[in-house]
Amino acid sequence: MPDLAMESVVHVYERGAVRALDGVSLRVLAGERVALVGQNGSGKTTLVRHLNGLLRPTSGRVSLDGRDTAPLRVAELARSVGLVFQDPDRQIFAGSVAAEVEFGPRNLGMRGAELRSAVDEALTAVGLSNEARTNPYDLGASRRKLLALASILAMRTPILVLDEPTTGQDERGVATVRGVIDAAHAEGRTVVAISHDMEFVAGSFDRVVVMSAGRIVGDGPPASVFAASSWEMLRSTYLEPPMAARVGERLGLGSTPTDGSLISALVRAG
């Protein structure tokens, strides 16, 4: 499984405009689950689009397992990095759910039984296995988002990048996304996800990277990033620590208390 690295990456969309990424250096080890958090416009989406070559650094370097990605085409990088877009409607184009999911793995050269198994597995993972023949636009928005996730899962890339996967999802949808991330982690795949849902971040990721104005301003495990000592930094980027972290810190249970420890402490407190 490959490592991902960004070294002093600067990205400017238009000459003279603000730096969407302002000297970002980040190393993601194989198998890590990394959440990117930060206010809108902090550079999260710009950052992840560098990972599969959709955007190229204005300066700096992006590497995959030590190899500079600059000479690699997006289609080549797609074998290693699967990026799920924030808006599924900017991704979905096929006439049926199965055809949509097939598109990516087919581009990567999968055929026959391998292709069928990849599609079935991905549809099952997101709970859409009974919708294979449905037109994607007959699905609701939240299920279209899960379809977009399935269409990347089927590519079986070692690195999964998810742009706001839980936005617009109900509790069941969030649980499905959690399940997908846990399964990918169990297989040793790397997961990088952008999210504004701090409960989801605290519960599903090993590492939280906080961005503000194109820079990384915080990086560490959830227990440290959501600890009381980091709340000022989080609030300066318009982020609120998860409710559990705030209650846990107040009760002396730390910033990532388990449900059990929280309930016991609350019962004790009467």
């Binding site: 997006v74 289609a75 184009f93 990567l108 590519m155």
Partner: peptide, 30 residues
């Protein structure tokens, strides 16, 4: 919309870089 959809399909391995023929073959179905 075309730019966004093409970017999403490139992320799924659709090769739209290189020769004119390769670009056309990639973009026309979209």
């Amino acid at each position: 919309r075309a730019v966004a959809i093409t970017a999403a399909q490139r992320a799924r391995g659709l090769d739209t870089e290189g020769s004119l023929w390769r670009r056309l073959r990639g973009v026309l179905p979209l």
